[in-house]
């Protein structure tokens, strides 16, 4: 089992969706990087993912990893946000028939996983349909 540190250092992204924008070419990154793969720039300004996006693709996971079998089946998707940033997350509170490319989603804070019965609880973002 990994230590809390591995979870903890991702908190700015997991909780607050902090992203980065290359100051020379404007390319955005989530999660932030040290080098821009567009122009090689190394300076970034902090940005934040907007809380509304659209599904670019999706699936319904029927056979889940062992620690998530109790949640299966669950939907997962890649959503595109302002500026073209794409993010992968579960789609919660969705009727599977509703899923379609282009579906508007927003971000909600959810419990993503837990490290066994006694380990830390791991939170983060999920998508939910905009109703």
């Amino acid at each position: 089992m990994s230590t809390s540190a591995r979870y903890w250092r991702e908190i700015p992204q997991r909780y607050r969706l902090e992203a980065a924008k290359c100051t020379s070419c404007g390319k955005q990154f989530f999660p932030p990087r040290l080098v821009c793969n567009g122009c090689g720039g190394r300076e970034f300004e902090a940005t934040k993912l907007s809380d509304k996006g659209k599904l670019a693709t999706y699936t319904v996971i029927r056979i889940a990893p062992s620690d998530l079998t109790q949640q299966a089946p669950y939907a997962i998707g890649i959503a595109e946000f302002d500026g073209g940033l794409r993010v992968t997350a579960q789609v919660a509170d969705v009727d599977f028939d509703e899923l379609k490319v282009g579906m508007p989603v927003r971000i909600e804070f959810r419990r993503i996983r837990e490290e066994g019965e006694a380990g830390i609880l791991c939170y983060g973002y999920k998508f939910v349909p905009v109703r």
Binding site: Q70, Q71, Q90, A92, D93, E108, F109, R110, R111, I112, L121, Y123, K126
Partner: peptide, 16 residues
Amino acid sequence: PSPDQDTITMSVEATK
């Protein structure tokens, strides 16, 4: 609550 919802997650959404 769904399995991915608890006091913390609902607190965050209400606070938003």
